[in-house]
Amino acid sequence: MTRDTGLQELLDGALAGSGLVVDEVTVTPAGRRRVVKVVVDRELPDVGADGFTEMTEPLSLDEIADATRTVSDALDDSDVLGEQSYTLEVTSPGVSRPLTQPRHFQRNVGRLVTVQLRDGDPVTGRITRASADDVVVTVPAAKKSPARDETIPYAAIDRAEVQVEFARKDDKES
């Protein structure tokens, strides 16, 4: 078992039952120390036949603080990182993080995204459903085209990212 595999398994076990999952772990050298960055996210329920259609609440600062204590305790009680000192950073996925896995799309239902297709033009719209196999993006009406829903298989996506909205215009407003 490699250090990275052991670290992932250790942290997965430490956070089991907390409602959080480890999204990513990186260990980066920084002089005589290392920086251990752990990205945690809310555990999502199993995807039903219809996929996710509701927005997922972002993590609170209290949840991140609890996760930090749990991860720190697990690392202190383990020798998976060896004797070299490290700095621990526990964070949630930021808005600038690319969407690379189905659960990333599922977590971002309701958000505005830009999806670059492998064979085609980019699609910008709001995620209205995300299943295990594909995502539905609602593209707003433009000058020459009506609003439409595009079902995009994950395999057809080259890259995707959430677009920052400072003033979201809901459909309820006129």
Rank of each mutant, 00 (worst) to 15 (best):
D12L: 06
T87D: 11
V47R: 08
L75G: 08
S60L: 05
Y154S: 04
G19S: 08
R168T: 12
R33D: 12
R107F: 10
A155P: 01
T26P: 02
D171T: 14
G110H: 10
A141Y: 07
D121T: 07
R42M: 10
P102Q: 10
L20A: 11
P122I: 04
D134N: 11
E161R: 15
R3K: 13
V115I: 12
T28Y: 01
L10P: 02
G125I: 10
I127K: 03
G51D: 04
F52L: 06
L10I: 06
L59V: 13
F52G: 02
V35I: 15
D149F: 03
A130E: 05
A30P: 00
F105L: 09
A132F: 01
L11W: 04
A167Q: 11
V113H: 02
D41M: 14
S78F: 05
V90I: 09
T26Q: 09
E24L: 08
V21I: 14
D121M: 07
E57N: 11
M1W: 08
D158H: 11
L59N: 03
S60K: 05
D50E: 15
T138R: 15
P45W: 05
V71N: 05
V80D: 06
R103I: 05
V71G: 07
A142G: 15
G110I: 12
V80G: 03
G31K: 09
A49D: 14
T28V: 14
V39M: 07
L20P: 00
Q8W: 06
D149G: 00
R118K: 15
V109F: 07
D170H: 14
V21M: 04
D46C: 00
S72L: 08
L15N: 04
F105K: 05
T100K: 14
G48V: 07
A160C: 05
E57I: 06
G94V: 11
S96P: 00
V40I: 13
V71Q: 07
E83S: 15
V40F: 04
D50P: 00
R42P: 00
E89G: 07
S60R: 08
E165W: 03
D77Y: 01
V40Y: 03
P153K: 10
L11C: 04
V71M: 09
V27R: 06
D149P: 00
Q8S: 12
V27N: 03
R97L: 08
A49R: 15
V21S: 06
R118E: 15
D23Y: 04
Q101V: 12
V95G: 05
K169Q: 12
R69T: 12
